[in-house]
Simulated scan of single mutants.
Amino acid sequence: MTNDNPYNFLPLQPTGRNETNTANTYAPEDMIKIYEQQCLTQVPEDKLTEFLPALKSFYDIDDNTLDISAIIFDAISDACIIYNHKIKTGDYQILGELIEEVIEYDEEATDKEGAEDKDIQAYTLECQRNFLINDIKMAYHFNLFIYGDGYSTLTKQKTLLEKMYWFVRGRFEEHLLDDSEDSESLESINKQLADLGIQAMDLTTIEQIINYVEDNIIDDAMVDTFNKLLDDAE
C-alpha cells in the first residue's frame, strides 16, 4: 500500500487509448479485474467518496470504460458479485452409487389418481458441488432424490456453505436437521468466514448467496451424468 495506490489496486497494462484519446483501454480480462476491484475492495466508510475517483485515476479510465467492463463481466464470466462477494460455480463429484428407493403408496389416493404412478421409480444419489466465494473453494454436499421427471435436493450440515444454507432455510425446517439444537448464528458464520479470509456477510448477503447456490447446484453436465446412471440402472 502506497500513497499512489492506497487501495492496493492490481497494476495492469493498458492496450491503448479510447477513440477520443482521453482515457486508457484494457483487454477484456483486465477490464473484468478492474470491475471486480471496484466491487470487491473493502473501503472504510469515511473513504467511500474518495474510492471511485482513486480507482479511475489509477487506471486512467472514464465512466464509459467502467460501464463496458460491467457488460463484459456479465457477458463472459461465470461468476457474479453479490454485495461485495464474488461467487462462482465450481466442479462436481458423484459420491456414491445410485440407490433405488421403495415408495410407499397411499392405496386410496392411488386408486383415485391412477395406478400408473406405481410404475414410477425413485432413486437417491449422494453428490457434491463446489463453489468459490472470493476464490475460496467451499464444498456443498447434497442428497439428490429423483422421482420420475422431477428431483429435489437435501443438503447436509457439515461444511460452512451447508451451515449457511441451514442458517437461512433451517429456521423454518428444523424438523429436517440432524442436530437442530446445534444451530449457527450470524456471528459464528462470520467468524468461520474470517478464518477462511472471506469478509463478513449480513443476512441479506447470505440469503442471496444461498439463492445462487440453489440456482446453480445442478447443471447440464450433471443432468447428462444422472441420465446415463438412470439408463444403466433401468
Results as ranks from 00 to 15, higher is better:
residue 104 E to W: 02
residue 129 R to H: 04
residue 226 F to Y: 10
residue 36 E to N: 07
residue 37 Q to S: 01
residue 206 I to M: 12
residue 180 S to Q: 07
residue 70 A to V: 05
residue 93 Q to W: 14
residue 176 L to R: 14
residue 15 T to Y: 00
residue 153 T to I: 13
residue 43 V to P: 07
residue 52 L to Q: 11
residue 173 E to K: 15
residue 21 N to G: 11
residue 223 V to C: 14
residue 54 A to N: 08
residue 70 A to I: 05
residue 213 V to D: 00
residue 46 D to M: 08
residue 103 I to Q: 11
residue 217 I to L: 14
residue 149 D to A: 09
residue 55 L to V: 01
residue 224 D to P: 04
residue 42 Q to C: 10
residue 231 D to A: 15
residue 59 Y to A: 06
residue 28 P to A: 01
residue 7 Y to D: 05
residue 8 N to A: 10
residue 63 D to H: 12
residue 206 I to K: 03
residue 73 F to W: 02
residue 219 D to P: 05
residue 126 E to L: 14
residue 228 K to V: 11
residue 72 I to N: 10
residue 152 S to R: 07
residue 61 I to H: 00
residue 161 L to M: 07
residue 224 D to L: 10
residue 92 Y to G: 01
residue 223 V to L: 14
residue 117 D to C: 15
residue 65 T to Y: 03
residue 156 K to R: 09
residue 175 H to N: 12
residue 165 Y to M: 05
residue 91 D to M: 01
residue 57 S to R: 11
residue 226 F to E: 03
residue 80 C to A: 01
residue 148 G to S: 02
residue 39 C to W: 01
residue 46 D to R: 07
residue 145 F to N: 11
residue 197 G to V: 04
residue 203 L to Q: 12
residue 81 I to F: 01
residue 94 I to L: 04
residue 10 L to S: 14
residue 97 E to A: 15
residue 35 Y to L: 08
residue 69 S to P: 03
residue 150 G to K: 14
residue 14 P to S: 09
residue 213 V to E: 01
residue 74 D to I: 04
residue 124 T to V: 08
residue 58 F to C: 04
residue 204 T to Y: 08
residue 227 N to E: 11
residue 32 I to Y: 02
residue 222 M to Y: 07
residue 195 D to F: 07
residue 57 S to F: 09
residue 63 D to Q: 14
residue 21 N to A: 12
residue 158 K to N: 11
residue 38 Q to V: 01
residue 111 D to N: 13
residue 72 I to G: 04
residue 143 N to M: 09
residue 215 D to R: 10
residue 7 Y to A: 03
residue 18 N to K: 08
residue 194 A to K: 05
residue 138 M to T: 00
residue 206 I to E: 01
residue 60 D to Y: 05
residue 16 G to E: 00
residue 3 N to Q: 14
residue 2 T to M: 10
residue 9 F to R: 00
residue 51 F to R: 05
residue 121 Q to I: 05
residue 211 N to G: 02
residue 156 K to Y: 15
residue 81 I to W: 00
residue 109 A to G: 02
residue 48 L to N: 06
residue 174 E to C: 07
residue 22 T to N: 00
residue 118 K to W: 09
residue 97 E to Q: 13
residue 205 T to C: 13
residue 21 N to Y: 14
residue 136 I to D: 01
residue 61 I to C: 06
residue 209 I to A: 13
residue 136 I to T: 10
residue 233 A to E: 13
